[in-house]
Design a protein around this nucleic acid. Structure first.
Length: 278
DNA sequence: ATATGAGCCTGTATGC
DNA sequence: TGCATACAGGCTCATA
């Protein structure tokens, strides 16, 4: 499932293919994504030039301009199973199941959105990002200075709930999905059940350090398989990473060899080492 | 303000 | 072999 590093990898991969290009056609085969694709979606995209592709949280923001230099944005989320793959005319001629949207560019490239579970979304909007309901209430980006130990410490003084759920709360900080929540807590030696308001400033410094480290490492790993991801296989890059805990319940802790435990937070699997994490 | 659970989906893995 | 069921989980919404 695309987490922040995968979305960033997709952004970088798409950038060279689409920035500066004009959208000459849009094909929508399935409108029922997380929210239905708006009726005027195609009209609002055709003829627009792609100025930039940015990322906010796990959203991709494709910045568009029309002939009169009016700005708009294509907002896309990959959900759990979404992917963008760049095709040429020949490879695009055969569609696969769940190929829901095509953006046809003046270069001849076809940017194809595929999403089996349809948890992803696509919107076009004008005006500032802050006016977008989906973007308005997002916490800071994890890889910027806006996230530090002081911030998390200050923001969790009235949160007696488990730290795992706190760092996965998009209002607090974005981009820490289940995989990276598990991994960063293990690396910081913090028990996922520990009350967020009972963690010291020092330990938050450590946790933030690990969050930034695991995300950065995953982006770097994704970068090495960037071409494959965007152009062909649709395989995310992070599969190469060696996880400490994620998906390893029952297996031996890589540090102390005791069996990793499985718990559940808000319906999501949590794997941790009861000995290394306190 | 914070926390919890339901619901959205389909591919894959497991159980009988 | 085939069918049924559980699970995966980011996100929003409704409810407590």
């Amino acid at each position: 499932m695309p987490e922040l590093p995968e979305v960033e990898t997709v952004r970088r991969g798409l950038s060279s293919e689409i920035v500066g290009r004009t959208i000459t056609g849009v094909v929508v085969r399935e409108r029922r994504l997380r929210w239905p694709i708006a009726e005027n979606f195609e009209t609002r995209l055709v003829g627009k030039r792609i100025d930039a592709i940015e990322r906010r949280s796990k959203y991709l923001l494709v910045r568009l301009v029309d002939d009169a230099r009016r700005a708009s944005t294509l907002l896309a989320h990959l959900g759990m199973t979404g992917s963008f793959v760049v095709h040429d005319e020949r490879s695009a001629s055969r569609t696969k199941p769940h190929d829901h949207v095509d953006l046809i560019l003046d270069s001849g490239a076809i940017v194809r959105y595929n999403d089996p579970r349809r948890f992803g979304s696509m919107h076009v909007f004008d005006g500032p990002d802050s006016a977008q309901p989906l973007l308005a209430h997002l916490g800071p980006e994890p890889l910027t200075d806006a996230l530090d130990g002081r911030y998390l410490f200050d923001q969790t003084r009235r949160r007696p709930g488990p730290i795992k759920q706190a760092i996965m709360d998009n209002h607090l900080v974005v981009g820490v999905g289940n995989i990276y929540a598990n991994e960063s807590l293990f690396r910081a030696g913090i028990h996922p059940n520990r009350a967020a308001n009972r963690i010291s400033k020092q330990r938050y410094d450590q946790l933030v350090h690990e969050i930034k480290a695991v995300l950065s490492e995953a982006i770097n790993a994704g970068g090495s398989t960037l071409r494959d991801y965007v152009n062909a296989s649709g395989e995310p890059g992070y599969f190469q990473l060696n996880y400490f805990v994620y998906g390893r319940d029952g297996e031996a802790c890589r540090h102390c060899k005791s069996a990793l435990k499985l718990a559940r937070h808000g319906g999501r699997a949590t794997v941790y080492c009861a000995k290394c994490q306190r």
